[in-house]
Design a protein around this nucleic acid. Structure first.
Length: 879
RNA sequence: GCCCGAGUGGCGGAAUUGGUAUACGCGAGCGACUUAAAAUCGCUUCUCGAAAGAGAUAUGGGUUCAAGUCCCAUCUCGGGCACCA
């Protein structure tokens, strides 16, 4: 073989890796305890019918480069792989063609696996998992039951986002700008009884621990915003007629009661409290500005607020009901587009507990039922939305903050800080201080207390679709839910013939009549027909990987203790959904004593997308899709594709595919090949003797060749003509060689793949100029292996050495003379060659610098100041 | 509107802690090899200038011996959130 032939060598090495199970992670009893462990994973893919795309390749190659890098450093490495297979595309395909999703999934997995192997990924194939496999989803159901037992999986009837196209409800995280994340259809609101996971129970911890995570700031900020913690107060406003009743009662019994306190503040969940408040005599609001309470001139409730029925009067009922219906019909998009305030008066009044005044209660869709209490106190003087509303409906506006003279706020209503006015005993108090003081005051009267509210809602997990993990619940005759006993798991997803969800909003499972019937404790029950959100399946897979075939537990205790948490997790999506959910489950299972850590992912790498050459998103309809398999098969091979995608730019930024630039990477790999195999390019070649020239350290490593893809040493080859120059050449490259080892090693540690490849290119260019040696070729192959493993193995095999990561010799980096930059007043004026000794000698260095003509003529007399920074080969003379 | 990022040659990008701006690659140009082309190899390639030199990292200021890097303001682009009280 005298030409670089990727097709041939890649096939050869992939076969070897396959047969030797080369990337199998060590079992717990095989582990070398002296070495650190390293658990890496990509976000497992949904195996679509289209196969791998270049984005997958970028994502998986990042993991692969790091996997091989750490493996070459002899760490104990776990790098598994799996498939996130439940989901709508397979089901929609089933509806269209009648092909069972089970079948399609099987084919798609086989295709993905074949393609991943063609890319030479160092995957432990013995750990492959598939979320739609009953062996896997048995434990997803088990996880659900653990949450259910602790009250963290519950059922609630409320208005939910409904996608009319996909015919299922969606979680908040799956609604993007009022549209379904998957199909882009406008979502609607539908009142349904649905299953939720109580992620809000962990809101504080999820928020507080974000800062300490080694995750990109972008993701951390998004999660913080998503959780959206707001500190404020909840305040009860007594209903006006209730206040009158209460006053009467006080007269009769002479036992003064706190105004408006119907019942003590009920504890969560909100569901219970809503029920309780239906009979209450007050309306509870949430505000972040209790300091402005004296300016609250009306209340606004969400149209769906449970108390509305109680508040309407005969006069207002018709208009109120009409308004409620209208708002429900409005799509989220319509609401976002038209921010003109709408609303209706309920006919009832409440008492402002601060002023004692009677204020009207209105309904408006700018108040959201899902946030806070679904009710607000409106302070039109200091809140823009309330101001708009008051202006439109001619409601009173009372200023309670004195706008400072110097304020730049020229808005119609001032919402900054200042001194209170029109606020009774609080007049003159700064708003910052008044917040606390007023809450204390309200608390003393029993009508308010400080309160923290979150933007994040509980996670809606039921889906009215067939192709998902069945929820392990059945209902008795009264409709009460019962857990399927753990020893009856898994609840197998039955095979059906018609996958179409029915119009009533139930999944196709409702048609599996036999399956629906189940007996629990001798009682006949009916199974839940909703399936779990796919995100539930992916919320625990990182732990399944440690013992993927365990039929006794979701994960093995010892294995999880050793391997988890995941050290490096790489993905390009799911900033607030998946990445929040896995944190939530981790905290829950840690509380259950089932996980010995509270954060699932130590380091998160969030890679950018690869766009089409035209800079636009790749899409079939635009016809600008680059198929990675085409790239490989066109002759470039997997190594070129992998290396190119690492070289394309910083891993965490979006990049555009450049059909020309990939040729440059192919040329580079060709040059690597030529250095080792082409007689013309070789400066000197190896034989038994040149191996002996390897430094002691490197020889030590190479004498213990690793099993990874390195066969037996080749017999020595004939000596070459230029062998005489070998030792000289070796000297010529010693600096660049050690520099390159250092640069590539450090770059991989700081996840800078593009510059690592650039350093290898420089090294190769240098070897082309100077001539190469066996040692150079071996070091090059070792450093290249994470990127281009097939080619690297081919070179290493030739020299009969292992792939242990080389170590640079710091002393080899010290050159006899160094180039020092001479600046005058910060401007570059000369470059001088000085010995290492002189570099350390400030006086000598100054003297040498001043001797330079271009320097001397700019300086008359003694320099004012001379600066020689420690870590730069530079001298700056201030004239 | 609010909160994050980012802005460097013809293009993708490099400059890691404030210390030689433009590494590496693409493209372009020139040359070698070739009957020729491709491939390959070598050289050139920020701008102005004959040169000495001067000027350039979105724009304008500032700090510093020294600024792509730090600070202030402005502009542009990208991302996230968005009637969340």
């Amino acid at each position: 073989m005298d030409r670089y032939n990727p097709a041939e060598i890649e096939k050869k090495w992939q076969k070897i890796w396959e047969e030797t199970e080369a990337f199998k992670a060590p079992s717990l009893d095989e582990i070398d305890k002296k070495q650190a462990k390293m658990y890496l994973a990509e976000m497992f893919p949904y195996p679509s019918g289209a196969g791998l795309h270049v984005g997958h390749v970028r994502n998986f190659t990042i993991v692969d480069v790091l996997t091989r890098f750490y493996t070459q450093q002899e760490m104990n490495v776990l790098r598994p792989f799996g498939y996130d297979t439940f989901g709508l595309p397979a089901e929609n395909y089933a509806i269209k063609t009648g092909t069972a999703p089970q079948e399609v999934t099987k084919e798609n997995i086989a295709n993905f696996r074949r393609q991943a192997k063609k890319l030479g990924f160092a995957i432990d194939w013995l750990r492959e998992i598939n979320t739609s496999n009953p062996e896997y989803y048995k434990w997803t159901q088990w996880c659900f039951l653990q949450l259910y037992k602790k009250g963290l999986a519950y059922r609630k009837e409320s208005y939910q986002w409904w996608c009319p196209v996909d015919q299922t409800v969606l979680a908040n995280e799956q609604v993007e700008n009022g549209r379904c994340w998957r199909c882009g259809a406008e979502v609607e609101k539908k009142k349904m009884k649905q299953w939720f996971f109580k992620i809000t129970a962990y809101a504080d911890e999820l928020l507080d621990e974000i800062d300490a995570l080694d995750w990109p700031d972008k993701i951390k900020t998004m999660q913080k915003n998503w959780i959206g913690r707001s500190e404020g107060a909840e305040i009860d406003f007594t209903l006006a007629d209730a206040a009158e009743l209460s006053a009467q009662a006080r007269c009769e019994t002479e036992a003064p009661r706190a105004v408006g306190v119907g019942s003590p503040h009920p504890s969560e969940p909100r569901l219970e409290r809503e029920a309780a408040s239906a009979s209450a005599k007050s309306i509870r609001v949430f505000t972040t500005r209790p300091d402005t309470i004296f300016g609250a001139t009306f209340l606004v409730l969400a149209p769906e607020h449970p108390l509305v029925d109680k508040l309407v009067t005969d006069k207002t009922r018709e208009k109120v009901n009409q308004y409620q219906t209208e708002t429900l019909k409005k799509s989220e998009i319509e609401r976002q587009e038209n921010k003109e305030k709408t609303g209706v008066f309920t006919g009832s009044y409440a008492i402002n507990p601060a002023t004692g005044e009677k204020i009207p209660i209105w309904l408006s869709d700018y108040v959201l039922m899902g946030y806070g209490e679904g009710a607000i106190m409106a302070v039109p003087a200091h809140d823009e939305r309330d101001f708009d509303f008051a202006e439109k409906f001619d409601l009173p506006i009372v200023t309670v903050i004195d706008k400072p003279e110097n304020s730049e706020d020229d808005g119609r209503c001032y919402h900054g800080e200042g001194e209170l006015v029109n606020s009774g005993q609080f007049n003159g108090v700064r708003t910052e201080d008044a917040r606390e003081q007023i809450v204390t005051w309200l608390e003393q009267q029993g009508v308010g207390k400080s309160k923290v509210t979150y933007r994040m809602r509980d996670w809606l997990i039921s889906r009215q679709r067939y192709w998902g993990c069945p929820i392990p619940i059945a209902y008795d005759k009264n409709g009460e839910p019962h857990a399927i006993p753990e020893d009856k798991l898994p609840v197998i997803l039955p095979e059906v013939t018609d996958y179409q969800p029915d119009k009533s909003g139930r999944s196709a499972l409702a048609k599996a009549k036999d399956w629906l019937k189940v007996e629990i404790d001798g009682k006949e029950m009916t199974r839940e027909t909703d399936t779990l959100d796919g995100y539930a399946c992916s919320s625990w897979y990182l732990w399944r990987y440690v013992s993927p075939h365990d039929d006794k537990a979701a994960w093995d205790k010892d294995a999880i203790k050793y391997w988890a948490p995941t050290d490096v997790y790489v993905g390009a999506d799911h900033a607030v959904a998946h990445l929040l959910y896995i944190r939530f489950w981790c905290k829950f299972f840690a509380d259950e004593g089932l996980l010995p850590f509270r954060e699932p992912v130590k380091k998160l790498l969030y890679n950018g997308y690869i766009n089409a050459p035209d800079g636009k998103k790749m899409s079939k309809s635009k016809g600008n899709v680059i198929d990675p398999l085409d790239v490989i098969d066109s002759g470039y091979g997997a190594d070129t594709l992998r290396t190119y995608e690492m070289f394309i730019g910083p891993y965490n930024e979006d990049a555009s595919w450049d059909t020309k630039a990939i040729g440059g990477v192919y040329r580079f790999l060709n040059r690597c090949w030529n250095l080792a195999f082409s007689k013309e390019k070789r400066g000197a070649d190896d034989n038994s003797e040149s191996s002996a020239e390897l430094s002691a350290k490197q020889r030590c490593e190479t004498e213990a060749p690793r099993a990874v893809g390195v066969g037996s040493p080749h017999p020595s080859e004939p000596r070459l003509e230029r062998e005489a120059e070998d030792s000289k050449l070796s000297d010529a490259n010693i600096v660049i060689r050690n520099k390159t080892i250092k640069k590539v090693t450090e770059d991989l540690h700081r996840v800078s793949f593009n510059t690592a490849v650039a350093a290898l290119m420089e090294y190769v260019n240098e070897l082309y100029k100077n001539g190469t040696t066996a040692e150079d070729n071996i070091v090059l192959a070792k450093l290249l292996k994470p990127f281009a493993p097939h080619l690297a193995c081919e070179i290493l095999e030739k020299y009969g050495v292992g792939d242990i990561w080389p170590v640079w010799d710091e002393s080899a980096l010290v050159e006899d003379t160094v180039e020092v930059v001479v600046q005058v007043n910060g401007k570059l004026r000369a470059k001088i060659q000085v010995s290492t000794e002189d570099l350390a000698n400030e006086e000598k260095l100054t003297e040498l610098a001043l001797k330079e003509e271009n320097v001397a003529r700019r300086i008359s007399g003694a320099p004012k100041k001379v600066i020689i920074p420690k870590n730069a080969k530079l001298i700056n003379i201030v004239a």
